[in-house]
Simulated assay, not measured.
Amino acid sequence: MFSVCVRAPFALILCGLTLLSGCGGSAEHIERAAVKGTVTYDGKPLASGSILFVPDVDAAGKPLRGKAAQAIITDGTYSLTAEEGPTVGNNKVQISATRKTGKFQESDGQKIEIEQQYLPAKYNSSTTLSHDVKAGENTADFTLEAK
């Protein structure tokens, strides 16, 4: 009787520890990295815009796991810390910039000036840009042309 009473609490503790370690151990760690750089358009720093790093595929062609990481471009520069940065590995890169059109639309009783994407689609919606993000600090500079 004594051995059964001692074993039961021990078995419960052992089961609890196994469950806890199983939950913590099964979570996949996705490595992210810091990245900074410059973006020029037709030879000049891109005044303002955004840059988006989207996990692509690994060397075996399997999709990389992770979330997209976005930064604001100001005066041709951008920066992301490792905590907010892109997934380590190959990433597609989308760069967007808009400018006012001089046309307005009404929304909730207010006139709002319409903005339009002016960078070619090959840099954003149909991007041909990519960057292989390495662990640690990265520099990724992009030179864009109107053509």
Rank of each mutant, 00 (worst) to 15 (best):
Ile73His: 10
Ala33Pro: 08
Ile73Tyr: 12
Asp108Gly: 00
Val93Ile: 09
Ala69Leu: 05
Asp75Arg: 13
Lys92Asn: 14
Ile13Cys: 05
Tyr78Glu: 09
Gly109Ser: 10
Gln110Asp: 09
Lys103Ile: 08
Met1Trp: 05
Gly49Pro: 03
Ser96Met: 14
Glu106Phe: 00
Lys134Thr: 12
Ser21Phe: 12
Ala60Gln: 14
Gln94Trp: 02
Ala135Arg: 13
Thr98Arg: 11
Glu83His: 01
Lys111Pro: 00
Gln110Trp: 10
Asp75His: 10
Lys111Gly: 00
Ser21Pro: 00
Phe10Arg: 11
Thr74His: 13
Ala8Glu: 10
Ser96Thr: 14
Ala8Met: 08
Ile51Asp: 04
Gly43Pro: 07
Asn90Glu: 06
Glu84Asp: 14
Gly16Gln: 05
Asn90Phe: 05
Ile73Ser: 13
Pro9His: 09
Val35Phe: 13
Asp58Gly: 04
Leu20Ala: 07
Ala8Trp: 07
Leu20Thr: 01
Arg32Ala: 00
Tyr41Trp: 06
Ser79Gly: 10
Met1Ala: 04
Ala8Pro: 01
Pro45Thr: 05
Ala140His: 01
Ile72Arg: 14
Lys62Leu: 03
His29Asp: 12
Gln116His: 05
Thr87Gln: 09
Ala71Val: 14
Gln116Arg: 15
Ala140Cys: 04
Arg32Lys: 13
Thr139His: 03
Gly66Thr: 06
Ala69Trp: 03
Leu144Phe: 07
Thr143Val: 15
Ala97Phe: 09
Ala33Tyr: 06
Lys62Cys: 00
Ile73Val: 15
Lys67Cys: 03
Thr128Asn: 10
Val35Leu: 07
Thr98Val: 12
Ala47Lys: 15
Thr74Leu: 12
Glu28Leu: 06
Leu46Gln: 11
Lys100Ala: 15
Thr40Met: 09
Leu20Asn: 02
Glu84Lys: 11
Lys111Cys: 01
Val4Cys: 02
Val35His: 12
Asp132Glu: 04
Val54Leu: 12
Lys92Pro: 07
Ser126His: 11
Glu28Val: 06
Gly43Ile: 09
Val4Asn: 11
Leu12Pro: 01
Ala71Asn: 08
Cys15Pro: 00
Val93Asp: 08
Arg32Glu: 02
Val39Phe: 12
Pro9Lys: 00
Ala68Leu: 02
Thr127His: 12
Leu144Gly: 03
Val133Leu: 07
Leu19Ala: 14
Gly22Thr: 11
Leu14Met: 13
Phe53Glu: 06
Pro120Ala: 02
Phe10Gln: 11
Glu113Ser: 02
Ser48Lys: 15
Thr40Phe: 10
Ala121Gly: 02
Cys5Pro: 00
Leu46Tyr: 11
Phe142Thr: 03
Val39Tyr: 01
Val57Tyr: 08
Leu46Lys: 09
Tyr118Thr: 07
Thr18Val: 15
Arg65Tyr: 02
Phe53Tyr: 11
Ala33Thr: 04
Ile30Gln: 10
Glu28Tyr: 01
Glu31Val: 07
Thr98Glu: 12
Gly43Thr: 11
Ser96Ala: 13
Asn138Ser: 14
Lys103His: 09
Tyr118Lys: 06
